[in-house]
């Protein structure tokens, strides 16, 4: 099973996990990214490249499927205005054994950070805004998987 959804709507983690558990694997791994409300942040605005995003995330998923014996991959990435505590992203993987599920899940979230066309803008309580700068360590993490 391969599912990629780029959406503004929220999602239900339990529902997503149940669908992955039903695939008959021995292990399900997942990552859920949440908006942190630090430093007076009141919202995160996620912009993306609609003509490219789903296809690019699909390519990243194909890369994971080529590397690990997976029975299922599910990625949900939200866009739009999200408040602290809101879910931003979900990555779920299923395999017969835990190692492939855990490793592929970590690979997918690292690659989403450095290789999916999303940009985050922070909105603060005092009215200030700031585009989040890409972090060199995120790039290095993703590239670490190429070795």
């Amino acid at each position: 099973m391969k599912r990629v959804a780029i959406q503004s709507a929220d999602f239900d983690v339990a529902t997503e996990l149940a669908a992955l558990e039903a695939l008959g694997g021995g292990g399900v791994a997942s990552f859920t990214g949440i908006v942190r409300g630090e430093g007076g942040l009141i919202a995160l605005e996620l912009e993306h490249y609609p003509a490219m995003t789903a296809a690019q995330v699909d390519r990243i998923v194909d890369e994971a499927l080529a590397r690990w014996p997976l029975l299922g991959v599910n990625i949900i990435h939200r866009f739009g205005r999200l408040e602290p505590g809101a879910r931003i992203v979900f990555v779920g993987t299923v395999s017969r054994h835990r190692t492939a599920a855990l490793e592929s899940c970590a690979f997918l979230i690292d690659w989403l950070k450095s290789d999916a066309p999303f940009w985050k803008k922070e909105h603060f309580a005092d009215g200030a805004t700031a585009w989040v700068a890409a972090r060199a360590e995120d790039e290095a993490k993703a590239k670490g998987w190429t070795a």
Binding site: I88, P117, E139
Partner: peptide, 25 residues
Amino acid sequence: QRFVPLDTVIGDAKEVALFPPVTGG
């Protein structure tokens, strides 16, 4: 809709996108 290095020739492309380094996930 494919990432390219800046020294890539545009050629017969239909769409060029310019943006900052991505910050998804």
